[in-house]
Design a protein around this nucleic acid. Sequence first.
DNA 1: TGTTAATGAAAAAACGTTTCCATAAGTAGA
DNA 2: TCTACTTATGGAAACGTTTTTTCATTAACA
Lengths: 335, 335
Amino acid sequence: MNKLKKITIEDVAEHCGCSKATVSRVMNHDKRVRPETVDIVMKAMAEIGYHPNSIARALSAGKTSAVAVVVPDNWQSQPYYIKLIDAIEDVADSKGYHIILKRRKYIDSVIELVNQKRVDGMIIRNMEASDKEKNLFSKMERIGMPFILTGQPVQDYPFVKVDNIGGAREVASLFVELGYKKILFISGPEDHIDSMDRLAGFRVGLAENGFDLKNLFIERGDYTKESGFRVSKKFFENKSVDAVFAANDRMALGVLLFCRERGMTIPDELGLAGCDDNFFAEFLTPSLTTVKPPMYEIGTIAMESLIRMIENRDRPNIKIILPTKLMLRDSCRRK
Amino acid sequence: MNKLKKITIEDVAEHCGCSKATVSRVMNHDKRVRPETVDIVMKAMAEIGYHPNSIARALSAGKTSAVAVVVPDNWQSQPYYIKLIDAIEDVADSKGYHIILKRRKYIDSVIELVNQKRVDGMIIRNMEASDKEKNLFSKMERIGMPFILTGQPVQDYPFVKVDNIGGAREVASLFVELGYKKILFISGPEDHIDSMDRLAGFRVGLAENGFDLKNLFIERGDYTKESGFRVSKKFFENKSVDAVFAANDRMALGVLLFCRERGMTIPDELGLAGCDDNFFAEFLTPSLTTVKPPMYEIGTIAMESLIRMIENRDRPNIKIILPTKLMLRDSCRRK
DNA sequence: TGTTAATGAAAAAACGTTTCCATAAGTAGA
DNA sequence: TCTACTTATGGAAACGTTTTTTCATTAACA
């Protein structure tokens, strides 16, 4: 096997009869090098096909130009994670950073990345926070490695998140406007913060539009399609409502499937709305009204902030909440 | 701002009164170091909280333990890319590798990764091959950096791909079995290899099941939902068929939407099948029969092969074609 | 003409590892 | 007791950059 000789800065120096230092200065646009020398060096680099070794650079500079992005294990269930990552990559590329992708299940590997100084910073989609994660956060804080949360605030760490409360409030306003008098809210699993926020916002929205909260019913699901089906089956046995608002689209899909089986037509007999603008929402029959989180914006702002933290070595206290967008589709209509 | 003093191998050496070399040997499980010394060093490392710097390691070893994964720009449209990435990460983590994710649009950045020796290898989902990509491939070959294609074979480079021909053949077999006598195939954009393979396989499958190819009609789409709609609208103006096979699910969705508008019931008046098992296929009404590509397996095999190439420094000629799975759903039924 | 200041570039140190080479101590065989 | 071989370790070079220091040359000035 032919062993390729590596081309280093030394070869360039030799080829144009100057020192490594000069070549390095040319590469880094140091203005103290004479223009003609610059030309000579540039030409030499092109001629012998030199490219600086980024690892050596990183070691010398103490900066890797890489950031880790941590997503939930089931990122598959939410295509908006792709938007989040796209946004992060768009910013990253324009600033010369690379992103190392990790699922939460590989948190040990993420911790190693930090310990071994393999990344300059991190963006974490933290939907829950285990002890391991909390330790990680405090360690990063301690060693001064910047990071930003994009799920939920934890302690006093920087975050960029969705305004779940505001989004649900808009749905409430819509539901009242459409004339719904009795409403069912299907929550997520116990204590899930997103779901709690959505319920809180929904309540506020209903109340401020003159809806009597006595007519708001609440059932608990677990975010799965099946739970949406199950909950509605149980609920509709002895009660009825005008509309259902589910804490996510998967459960709303469950409700829709139940109605289809039961022969209840949507939106005529029942209004329906979900959250997340999941991939199928647009293609269901009827298409599903839902609350769309601004994932691209979150990714953009998170990455821009992170880079600022990395490069300025300061620690601006980023705490940003971004508004959702109500996607009004066919699953709810004036009563 | 408090400047954290970095803890290096030198500190460990000092702390336990031995040399850096010995500490290094302990970390790398060199058996030539006395067991008691190992204990001392291990304890010292734990006590002062030492973690080796991965960048320094990479420089010294000439190995980054990172691989680049390149996906199409519109990976958003195909959730199976997530499965591909998950598989790659699963293998990567078990072998101590990290993955750097890049979209194809940032190919320049990918090229830099290679030039700057920032990764040990690459997995590329190449659905088409631009000149830039071809140059990249040949450069990687030249400098001896391993890579694997997971889209289409190019020249003689290693690849792992889907058996599009076989998948389409199964659909053909199904269609004949269901009693369809006249069939429309909607192709992808001109010369798209996946689409061509699917058509070829479909033809073979029909013929070998005794179907008269005179009754196979072919129209060209461009993979979008809209083109599926448009093509069917135009086709059904003056012809009719028993079933449609579209080269992807998005176009099949277009056909479905057209039928819904036109009042043609699926599967009673028209059988329908697509390719890809896209996210919505399962949730459409009726749910869509489709050909599911084995993306997880592709990712697994690609990454395992890549690691073998990286670590063994040999170049086994990987050329693997994996079978699809027919997802039989409600959109086609016996005539 | 001699002193000082500014400039361009070389040499050397640093970044934090791994690895090669040397050495000292210990063991075994004669 | 000598030689030869192993074993555990230390010292130093290497990996390929950047950055600091040093030095030599030229320009400027009195």
